[in-house]
């Protein structure tokens, strides 16, 4: 560091200082999962930009922050949105916010899905539960240049039919963008005509051109373990598999140490990783 006299440090940018955004709209996707659309509420002119797969830290006055992945279209300015599972105090508070209420937003943070690398390849997207949220910006990005990619497959699993996110969109995607959508649920009553079973079992019903396919996976860790085992069994090379990891993200800037996963900080080295970078730890317990 520079040796300067006392008191000569310039005013610093505080990475922990959020910008202000207000709630534009809240849409309930399921009983316990909602999407909030945000708009800027401060004087900064800069547009909020992000890459698919990145996340923000959302701050609710007096309650704290929560790390939440961005679920909106990165190429549509001014439409920032998060799809949030209501599970803790901060997410519950977010779910109760009304139009115009202001929250703090820090971000975007983390690595992104390899949209560029998918050029010319088939793309197999595998999502479990809320894991579809951080993959939606990836799907939007693929649709934007649909002809640059081969097949797009979306394998998506949820707990029950009522827990499925983006139900209307799922149908539109298959119609408008030629996405092969396979949806499965863990349990159901007799009104559901779709697949019932775990996500990895869907691979039974598809054929993949292993060498020309890139896979992007996001869901609960155990679901990703079984999914990746299945993907590898299909012959897709490890370096064509990407996944998004979850840990306790507290500061999002590599200071607090909570999100460590072996040598990686999920917040800044992830959350999206190429599988070879973490495969040695992936099946170890309590890393």
């Amino acid at each position: 560091m520079n040796q300067t006299a006392v008191g000569e440090v310039e005013k610093l940018v505080d990475p922990m200082l959020p910008q202000l955004m207000s709630i534009r709209k809240t849409v309930w996707e399921t009983d316990d999962t909602f999407t909030i659309q945000l708009e800027k509420a401060d004087h900064y002119d800069a547009e909020f930009t992000f890459l698919p797969g990145q996340f923000n830290m959302l701050y609710v006055f007096g309650m704290g922050e929560s790390a939440l992945s961005i679920s909106s279209d990165p190429l549509k300015p001014g439409t920032l949105a998060h799809t949030i599972h209501r599970v803790g105090t901060v997410t519950t508070a977010l779910s109760q916010m009304k139009r115009g209420d202001v929250i703090g937003v820090r971000g975007p943070y983390g690595t992104n899905w390899p949209i560029e690398k998918a050029n010319g390849l088939d793309v197999c997207i595998v999502a479990g539960g809320i894991g579809l949220a951080p993959l939606r910006p990836a799907l939007y990005s693929l649709f934007r240049r649909r002809r640059d990619y081969g097949r797009i497959l979306l394998l998506y699993g949820a707990r029950s039919p009522l827990d499925l996110l983006y139900r209307v969109e799922l149908e539109q995607w298959s119609k408008l963008y030629d996405v092969e959508v396979l949806v499965t649920v863990d349990r159901s009553d007799s009104t559901w005509k779709g697949y019932i079973g775990v996500v990895p079992s869907l691979f039974m019903y598809i054929k993949l051109d292993a060498r020309a396919t890139i896979a992007m996976v996001c869901g609960p860790e155990v679901m990703m373990q079984y999914t990746i085992a299945e993907i590898l069994r299909r012959g897709i090379p490890p370096e064509q598999i990407y996944l998004s990891m979850e840990r306790n993200m507290n500061c999002a800037v590599g200071f607090c140490g909570h999100c460590q996963y072996g040598p990686k900080f999920i917040c800044k080295d992830g959350p999206v990783f190429g599988y070879p970078h973490i495969s040695h730890l992936f099946e170890k317990k309590e890393i």
């Binding site: 005013k11 610093l12 940018v13 505080d14 922990m16 200082l17 959020p18 202000l20 207000s22 509420a41 701050y59 006055f61 007096g62 115009g100 209420d101 202001v102 703090g104």
Partner: peptide, 20 residues
């Protein structure tokens, strides 16, 4: 102390204590 936050109706003012 990292931040001080004052609620102002629906909005708020956040100050970075750390950098100030």
């Amino acid at each position: 102390k990292l931040l001080s936050v004052v609620k102002k109706g629906k909005t708020m003012e956040i100050q970075s204590d750390a950098s100030n």
